[in-house]
Design a binder for these strands. Structure first.
Lengths: 142, 142
DNA sequence: ACAATAAAAGATAAATTTGTCTTTTATTAT
DNA sequence: ATAATAAAAGACAAATTTATCTTTTATTGT
């Protein structure tokens, strides 16, 4: 597993919220969980963190819900960083505290370019692109 | 984190055991844990699974310990598969059950070549190479 | 003002991963 | 045979991740 379960949910949830936002609609926890096939309450918690991390916005009360702020340019990497942190791209693959560029672990140089590639893919993938592909029924969210 | 903590320990432990095997010595749990800086009992459990998975061999009693069988050609991928399974290389990055080659998730095609690269790196890295580099003091195991 | 709605927050719990400790089993050397 | 050694096995515990449920707070429409 590359990403944590929370992070997988977070990405799918964000895509769904962004999709609704495109239609100028807010969406709630129940709807999101239903749409992406995730446990409702847990999804609520994740959406909450995404709001705290400024990925999503939310409004309480009737007509409230989660949405993507206008002019918000979201990339997948933002979600990954918000939920899983940067460890996937930086922490030593063999778990060595001292591993660094100057004192690399035996796999460091081999793995470095690969995780850079991975980071690049997440970095250049806008959430809007996933939304569009989803609208074209190119794939599902659950 | 790309690999689980258990898997990180497993790789480092295997390198150390292989190093001792090269000198025709068996080594015990206490020594391994000390050498790689891992929790002793937990390390014992991991060595146990590595034996069950035919990565390492072991002998009980005095003069016993863990060792690498003669003619055993170990690659890092073997250890990764034994401890973490194959999920890192195969399971959908967005956690979609139905994601496959024919019905890819929105990140599938971007991530596929990268995890293939990662698998290739682990596949072509023999444990013996890590042992040699370690002997040349190119790096540490803790 | 009031009722309804929906997120935020908090408390609790299940599951998994990580870690510890004790007992059992096998092997060796004396 | 016996004592010492060391892995195997099993029971238990802490920490983290995943998941659920309840209460509180903010907002809206009437």
């Amino acid at each position: 597993m590359i990403l944590s379960k929370s992070c997988e949910y977070a990405i799918r949830a964000t895509v769904y919220v962004a999709l609704k936002s495109k239609k100028n609609e807010k969406t709630g926890i129940i709807e999101v969980a239903e749409a992406i096939g995730s446990p409702m309450h847990f999804t609520g918690k994740i959406l909450q963190t995404l709001v705290r991390k400024k990925i999503l916005s939310s409004a309480k009360g009737p007509t409230g819900g989660f949405y993507v702020e206008n002019g918000q340019h979201l990339f997948l990497i933002d979600i990954v960083r918000a939920i899983d942190g940067n460890g996937l791209f930086t922490s030593c693959v063999l778990g060595l505290e001292k591993c660094s560029e100057t004192q690399p672990c035996p796999m460091h140089d081999q793995v470095k370019p690969i995780r850079d590639l991975l980071m690049a893919e997440f970095s250049k993938k806008p959430v809007t692109e996933l939304v569009e592909e989803f609208q074209q029924h190119k794939y599902f969210l659950k």
